[in-house]
Amino acid sequence: MRLADFILRNIEPILEQWEAFAASLLPAAKNLDSIALRDHAQQILQAIAHDLTMPQTRDQQHQKSLGRAPRLIGATETAAQTHAVLRARGGFNINQLAAEYRALRASILRLWIDQCEPVAPHLDDMIRFNEAIDQALAESVSFFSTQVEQAHNLLLGMLGHDMRSPLQTIQMTASYLAALNAGEAVSDAAARLIRSGARMQTLLDDLCDFNRTKLGLGVNITPRDVNLADVFADVVDQLRAAHPGRQIDLEVTGNLQGYWDGQRLQQLLGNLVLNAINYGAQDAPVRVVASADNAEVSFEVRNMGPAIDEETLEHMFDPLQRGPGQNAVSDARAGLGLGLYIASEIAKAHQGSIYVRSDRTETAFGVRLPRRA
């Protein structure tokens, strides 16, 4: 018996095995009824059976084996794609999704081969069937991953939005306590709250900016005429106060007037200087060197320390990256690993560029910005 005919004639026994296996995928399947457990399985089987009966060139066969079958005309989603979306929303993980197809493949082939005995099954049917299963799996995994990523981005957006109000309350209360002059103990506690609140605000801002970039929105900027000499002086003063044990030098040459978002460039420079403070030599100064010509302004943040290898340099501005040997649990300096990534996105939003160079003498992060993007 040809495999397509076997699938269509035996859909119910196949679906029973699919349902039984899906019910074992706990905890997601715990409260699902039979209809939910079988979700789109019948349509997937019918699509596979239909595919087995259609003529196919060698190139089409190869493309399908890579999960690149042509889209159906007039269909927004295949059954496999819809199945993946519903499984993702139902709390299944990607390993459980793939396991469903693995079990489906094994059960159909086992039942079909038993039915064919003593006649040998058609080898071409078996090859075509595996290609169809692989195509359905590829469609499911792609849609599942997209659905999970969208859910994560939505969660990050909601988290960032909902955390702002309680954090502002904490910061305002800490400032009120500091203004009371109620004794050294209260003042010290209020100062710690203010520092911690500022640190949390920075992490939250990075998280929100990262979420915007993942959604394809980019970092939001509001350009106006600003003088970066004043902007950078303010940033350096704040960082000197926050890190009294470190020397931070600012050297400015030329006219740094331009059309930018001053607060965003404060954030950019702050991220670069904090990176230098955290990972550079602790007994050497951090230098901020800014210069300008008629078309653009450029600045570098330079620090002494071990040279960074080429492989690390290539991924320096990737999100969720930290310095060598750093982890968020064991090192108090480690943040979310977003500082340099956010800095690169701010430069990009201004139609500028960012780069890094490193050798045995120093490491430098540099930015070039057109005066008016």
Rank of each mutant, 00 (worst) to 15 (best):
L72S: 09
A136P: 02
I73A: 12
N95A: 15
Q115M: 05
E117W: 13
Q60R: 08
G74R: 11
R89K: 15
Q81W: 00
P55G: 12
D134C: 05
Q63Y: 07
F129R: 10
P121I: 00
R102G: 07
R87L: 00
H122Y: 11
L97I: 04
P121G: 07
L137I: 00
V119W: 10
F129A: 05
A84P: 08
M126R: 07
T82W: 06
D134H: 09
A106M: 08
Q56E: 04
A88L: 00
L137H: 03
N93C: 15
Y101T: 07
P70S: 07
E77K: 14
V119A: 12
D125G: 02
A75Y: 01
N95S: 14
Q56S: 06
A136E: 01
A138R: 04
H62G: 10
A75R: 14
L72Y: 06
D114Y: 13
R110Q: 13
A88H: 00
L72H: 13
A84W: 05
T57K: 03
L72I: 06
L66T: 04
M126C: 09
D59E: 11
A132C: 09
V119T: 15
D134M: 04
A98M: 15
Q81N: 12
Q56C: 03
R71H: 08
R71A: 13
A136N: 02
A84G: 14
R128S: 00
T82F: 00
F129T: 10
H62Y: 13
L137K: 00
Q96K: 07
G67D: 08
T57C: 05
D134R: 11
M54S: 12
G67T: 09
D134Q: 11
A98Q: 14
H122D: 14
A79D: 06
I127N: 13
A69K: 04
L52T: 02
A84I: 15
T78E: 04
N95E: 12
R87Q: 01
E100K: 13
K64T: 04
L86S: 14
R110K: 15
Q63R: 03
L72F: 05
V85Y: 01
A132V: 04
A75W: 04
Y101I: 11
Q81P: 09
R68D: 10
T82E: 02
G67C: 13
W112F: 07
E139K: 05
P70R: 05
T82I: 07
R128Q: 00
N95Y: 09
A103G: 13
L66C: 07
A132F: 03
G74L: 08
P118E: 06
A136R: 02
R128D: 01
L109V: 15
D134W: 09
F92G: 02
L104D: 05
I133N: 01
F92Y: 12
A120G: 08
R58C: 01
V85W: 01
S65Q: 01
R68G: 11
N93D: 15
R89G: 09
I94G: 05
G91Q: 02
D59Y: 07
H62A: 12
M54W: 10
Q56P: 05
R89E: 02
D114F: 10
T57V: 02
I108R: 02
D114R: 14
M126W: 06
A99V: 04
E100Y: 13
N93Q: 13
A138H: 05
D125W: 01
A69S: 09
V119G: 11
A84Y: 05
T82A: 09
A138F: 03
I94Q: 08
